[in-house]
Computed example of a mutant assay.
Amino acid sequence: MHKSLYSRPNDVFLALLRDVRLERRLRQSDLAVRLGRSQAIVSRVESGARRLDITELVAWLAALDTDIVTFAKQLHARLEGDIAGVKRRAAKRLRTATFGRS
Rank of each mutant, 00 (worst) to 15 (best):
Met1Glu: 09
Met1Val: 11
Lys3His: 15
Ser4Tyr: 11
Ser7Tyr: 07
Ser7Glu: 03
Pro9Gln: 04
Asp11Gly: 08
Phe13Gly: 05
Phe13Ala: 01
Leu14Phe: 11
Leu14Ala: 09
Leu16Val: 05
Leu16Asn: 05
Leu16Phe: 02
Leu17Gly: 05
Arg18Glu: 10
Arg18Cys: 03
Val20Phe: 06
Val20Lys: 08
Arg21Met: 07
Arg21Asp: 06
Leu22Lys: 14
Leu22Asn: 10
Glu23Thr: 13
Glu23Phe: 09
Arg25Met: 14
Arg25Cys: 07
Arg25Trp: 06
Leu26Trp: 08
Leu26Lys: 07
Leu26Pro: 07
Leu26Met: 14
Arg27His: 12
Arg27Asp: 08
Gln28Val: 12
Gln28Leu: 14
Ser29Glu: 08
Asp30Arg: 02
Asp30Glu: 09
Asp30Met: 10
Asp30Leu: 09
Leu31Ser: 10
Leu31Gly: 03
Ala32Tyr: 01
Ala32Cys: 09
Ala32Gln: 02
Val33Trp: 11
Arg34Ile: 03
Leu35Thr: 00
Gly36Val: 04
Gly36Asp: 03
Arg37Gly: 02
Arg37Asp: 02
Ser38Ile: 04
Gln39Arg: 13
Gln39Asn: 08
Ala40Lys: 07
Ala40Ser: 15
Val42Cys: 03
Val42Glu: 01
Val42Trp: 03
Ser43Cys: 06
Ser43Gly: 01
Val45Cys: 08
Val45Arg: 05
Val45Met: 01
Val45Phe: 00
Ser47Ala: 12
Ser47Thr: 05
Ser47Leu: 11
Gly48Gln: 10
Arg51Lys: 10
Arg51Leu: 03
Arg51His: 05
Leu52Pro: 02
Leu52Asp: 03
Ile54Asn: 02
Thr55Lys: 05
Glu56Ser: 00
Leu57Asn: 00
Leu57Pro: 01
Leu57Phe: 06
Val58Gln: 09
Ala59Val: 05
Ala59Trp: 02
Ala59Tyr: 07
Trp60Asn: 00
Leu61Trp: 08
Ala62His: 13
Asp65Gln: 08
Thr66Glu: 03
Val69Lys: 07
Val69Ile: 15
Thr70His: 15
Thr70Asn: 13
Phe71Asp: 04
Ala72Trp: 02
Ala72Asp: 06
Ala72Ser: 13
Lys73Gly: 06
Lys73Ser: 11
Lys73Gln: 12
Lys73Asn: 14
Gln74Arg: 15
Gln74Glu: 15
Gln74Pro: 06
Leu75Gly: 07
Ala77Thr: 12
Gly81Gln: 04
Gly81Thr: 00
Gly81Trp: 07
Asp82Val: 08
Asp82Phe: 12
Asp82Tyr: 09
Ala84Cys: 08
Ala84Asn: 00
Gly85His: 05
Gly85Leu: 12
Val86Gln: 11
Lys87Ile: 13
Arg89Ile: 01
Arg89Ala: 14
Lys92Gln: 12
Lys92Thr: 07
Arg93Asn: 13
Arg93Ser: 15
Arg93Gln: 13
Leu94Met: 06
Thr96Arg: 14
Thr96Asp: 14
Ala97Val: 06
Ala97Phe: 09
Thr98Cys: 01
Thr98His: 10
Thr98Asp: 04
Phe99His: 11
Phe99Leu: 09
Gly100Thr: 14
Gly100Ala: 13
Arg101Tyr: 14
Ser102Lys: 11
Ser102Gln: 13
Ser102Val: 11
Ser102Pro: 15
